[in-house]
Design a protein around this nucleic acid. Sequence first.
DNA 1: TGACGTCAAGATCCG
DNA 2: CGGATCTTGACGTCA
Length: 419
Amino acid sequence: MNIGYACLAVGVADTQIKGCTIRNATDSRIAELAGENLSAVERMLEYNGLMNIRLFRMSSDIIPFAGNPVNTLDWSMLLAPQLAALGDKAKSLGIRLSMHPGQYTVLNSPRGDVVEAAIRDLAYHTAFMDAMGLGIENKIILHVGGGYGNHLEAMERFALHAEYLSPEIRNRLVLENDERIFNIEEVLELSETVKLPVVFDLLHHQANPSAPGGSPEIWMGAAAKTWKPKDGPPKVHYSQQDQGKKKGAHSTTISLDGFFDFIEMAQSYNPDIMLEVKDKNLSAVKCINALAEDKKINRLEQEWGRYKYNILEHAPEGYNRIRLLLKQKTAYPVRDFYTIIDGSLETPVTAGNARNAAEHVWGYFKDQADTSEKARFERLLSGYGKVKNAAPSMKAFLMKLQDKYQDEYLKGTLYFYLP
DNA sequence: TGACGTCAAGATCCG
DNA sequence: CGGATCTTGACGTCA
């Protein structure tokens, strides 16, 4: 049961996927960006390997405007060595990869131009994974598309258009229930016709349920059965509702209470679990630690090193509670640990706490900083409670100092990355 | 015609 | 000039 996250790694240096607008999308600019993006993905894979994250969804934007006619670059040829090396890295680290074209790739459209664009887009995703040399258990997840006022016809059109896809594309393709149009029951029905596996997305199911009679367990089991041995272990998407936002909006982080309930339900199918959550890799690490078989406090101590200055900034009392919690070296209080972390991060930052945390972090640099840096720090410090963006400005400044001085104890801290 | 989702790019403003 | 803040982009469907 691998647990993974999608597209971007929070708090991992130099992993941003860069793009450009269509009017700047010359082949040379695209080649430049694609090369940088492949390096960014490489760093994400290395991070995943270090953190024991064995499931990862790659961004669709690694090759800018791939599948769009403005991109005439022969990227798979040009970048072949880099792509192959990236695939080898994923394999050697045991990371299962996937890709997920967005809501604008619509294979079942009645419009010919839209279908052609969708096929080009799927061909890009397939060519990308093929160039990496990935086996077909590394999947491309796709929604069914539009409803057009008649779901049955829309599903038939999907099946018809799926016939036009190359075997290479079909081998990787997986269907997913969506939060507005096609529910899990319909997707499973379509899966029988088109012979494609199905990802069950629990939050989508809750937002867009099928007719009464099935439970999430039953649908998850039915979806799991659509996966053949060549497809690898079944995959599910798990996310939690952001309580403050509209239905279907992903939460900031995964709460372990809900996650444990989900695991109880899912474990008999032994699926790979893709988390869809705003804090991305951070929740993946949390969930992996929650299920870890070697329950060593060291896992939590490492996490503490990453979060401590954020906690100090949000809730100094949480800081003290965790220090007490981690004193018991033989225990593994993973649930309490993350409950305090999550609760503290939800606590609004006060000017005084932000100032205090900034002074702690400054402590790592104050002996090396030059006079202008010292002056800058003092000026930013005096802004707390007066200037509107005092806290983010200070963080940006301290992050630059970290770039320059590379303090060992601050390496990997989330202080610079979380608000 | 705007909302939807997504988040960096690009544009503009400010000191 | 650098930094902060606002707006746009790119896609297709649906209300």
